[in-house]
Design a protein around this nucleic acid. Structure first.
Lengths: 343, 343
DNA sequence: CGATCGGGTTGACACGTTTCACAACAGCGT
DNA sequence: ACGCTGTTGTGAAACGTGTCAACCCGATCG
């Protein structure tokens, strides 16, 4: 009862050739160089293909060609819209050059990341874009050494052994805190973690830089460390903040991430803290949900689509250009001020 | 300067065999039936593979095997977390049986959907899960007829030519409106569209059913039609509602979708309407951001992960079980009451 | 001591496509 | 009539893997 056509299962060029009364080569030419074949035979072949329900076998094609027509993006966390937007950017860039994109999700698990990488390597993808669990992991070097181009996305490495695309997180942290200082805040919390994450570290450093540059006393900027950048962690941090006595409580928080900021916003609201009057809030990434929050969130925008797009271009260059040299592209973030900091 | 190992590019079983001093078949056996080969030769072969940086060629493998080890999910809109969660569910199910998942995003464009389907067919994927732009499109039948199992996700079709997995949207709409009636509302807006979308139609019907069952006058339930289920559409609908004179304005809104509800919530808040006091709000899907909103959103939960998981099982059965028969699985939604309706 | 057995290994073949050198043939000018 | 050019079509070879019948050889059994 499955209802598939019983006879015509998986016709091959050979079958098409037989049906059309031509040779294999001719069928192949119809597929790949239609101009090389006379109109009427082409017509005959096309009709045969339609009748037989012929579908090109991509595996055979790839085997012959030696490499596939796909790029891959291994993302860190598909439930964070930030990475989805990056994927979107990659997709459009890939589409423009006729490649397709396969998406993998490591869920921040090194083990999953590893197995995805292995699979992609076996698939002979043209290139791998990845936001790795650990940019310094040796497995990345292994993949690259064996010949698959690898580009780091939203991460960098001290040794410049890979192309990478990232945003200046130090500058972003600076901008965020400068904005809060401009708005008159003198007690500010930085919420984020773990500090092993490169971007968190950099944003924190930027925050400190801005603080110092303004000549404010160091104890006014407090670090509230979380174990991850999720909504739940933000809520939890919010509880800690709301629990502090008002005179000591920071009047503003800069979150390493919009998810965290949204969680914090929720907890603050439900604890009766008014945003931005009693607690101003700055997020990071400017995901769509940041602007869509009940109190629209001030955030540091990263050019997400462009990030993905550029990464795709880099990996493609590495795959096709023999005199490719590794490049580290650094974009500039931009503060988007909204109601969560504007009284 | 690309830094790849110059010599060892793409070693094949043949190279490994030569290096280890054995035949091709033996190498293949090491890979596929390690027990069939003596420990010391196995050791020798493995060492040779490591030295040469051998990576199995999946294309060749698939060509030989006749089908790939992957499932595919063509999603309607990757920027809606609802579909990401479904993908998550599929992924875990696929992983459990050793298959990998490739994700495609049609962005609600029939043309993109079509080209993804063509590509997947060429890839000989084991099965295709899809939330189609139009469940009745003939292209779906074509794919199925040519032998690739297709399962509809969060959509159904009148003729039961496909397996499908969905949630009872009529019931969901009913539950949502019953909840609002319980809370004492007598003027309620249904916000959503376009009505060509099956789920929107069903939820609206469920809403009407509940309304009629409660014996309320039909004019108390108004339909606010949008052209899509996005945050922006929600905002726009919010503006329309906020513009109405208070005595005529609905005291509650049931949105066909959480994104729409979040947009509506934002617009209402910024227009000075208090939620839930002046406007109660019910969403649909219960995406994580619904619970994370500043005013946590009451929503109709769909078992998203389970949806994906079951769809994967169905497509797998269709792919492997010769006496497969099509099934339409219908899950039951569940109302999750939160602050947006609880004064 | 010969027959039998079975673990370990071999080598040829098939999968479906693309490519490429070459053949067939018509039209053309000399 | 001949060679030349250009257009169509041909058939074999190759890509890397998995499979399978056959083979080798030492050990066991009768």
């Amino acid at each position: 009862m499955a209802g598939r056509d019983p006879g015509s299962r998986n016709a091959s060029v050979k079958d098409v050739a037989a049906a059309a009364g031509v040779s294999l080569g001719t069928v192949s030419n119809v597929l790949n160089r239609p101009d090389r074949v006379s109109p009427d035979t082409r017509e005959r072949v096309l009709r045969a293909m339609a009748e037989l329900g012929f579908v090109r076998n991509e595996s055979a094609r790839q085997l012959r060609a030696g490499s596939s027509r796909t790029l891959a993006y291994v993302m860190l966390d598909a439930s964070n819209p930030f990475f989805i937007d990056i994927a979107q950017g990659i997709d459009t860039a890939a589409e423009a050059v006729g490649l397709s994109l396969v998406l993998c999700n490591s869920r921040s698990l090194a083990e999953r990341e590893q197995s995805h990488l292995a699979l992609l390597e076996q698939q002979r993808v043209q290139g791998i874009l990845i936001t790795p669990v650990d940019p310094d992991a040796a497995s990345l070097d292994d993949v690259a050494r064996r010949g698959t181009p690898v580009v780091l996305v939203d991460r960098t490495r001290a040794d410049q052994k890979f192309c990478s695309v990232a945003v200046d997180d130090v500058l972003g942290g600076q901008r965020a805190v400068e904005h809060l200082i401009d708005r008159g805040h003198t007690r500010v919390a930085f919420v984020g973690g773990p500090t092993t994450l490169g971007p968190v570290r950099d944003r924190w450093r930027g925050a400190q830089d801005a603080w110092a540059a303004a000549g404010l006393p160091a104890e006014g900027l407090v670090e509230v460390t979380t174990t991850g950048l999720t909504v739940a962690e933000g809520r939890e941090a919010g509880q800690r903040l709301a629990g502090m006595p008002a005179p000591r409580r920071p009047t503003a928080a800069f979150c390493a991430n919009d998810l965290t900021a949204l969680g914090l916003l929720q907890q603050a609201t439900s604890s009766g803290l008014r945003v931005p009057e009693e607690l101003a809030l700055v997020g990071y990434d400017d995901i769509d949900f940041a602007g869509a929050a009940a109190v629209p969130l001030t955030s540091v925008r990263q050019p997400r689509q462009e990030l993905g797009c550029t990464a795709a271009e880099l990996v493609l260059d590495e795959a096709t250009n023999p005199e490719h040299t590794h490049r580290q592209v650094l974009f500039t973030p931009e503060l988007v001020a909204r109601a969560s900091t504007l009284g």
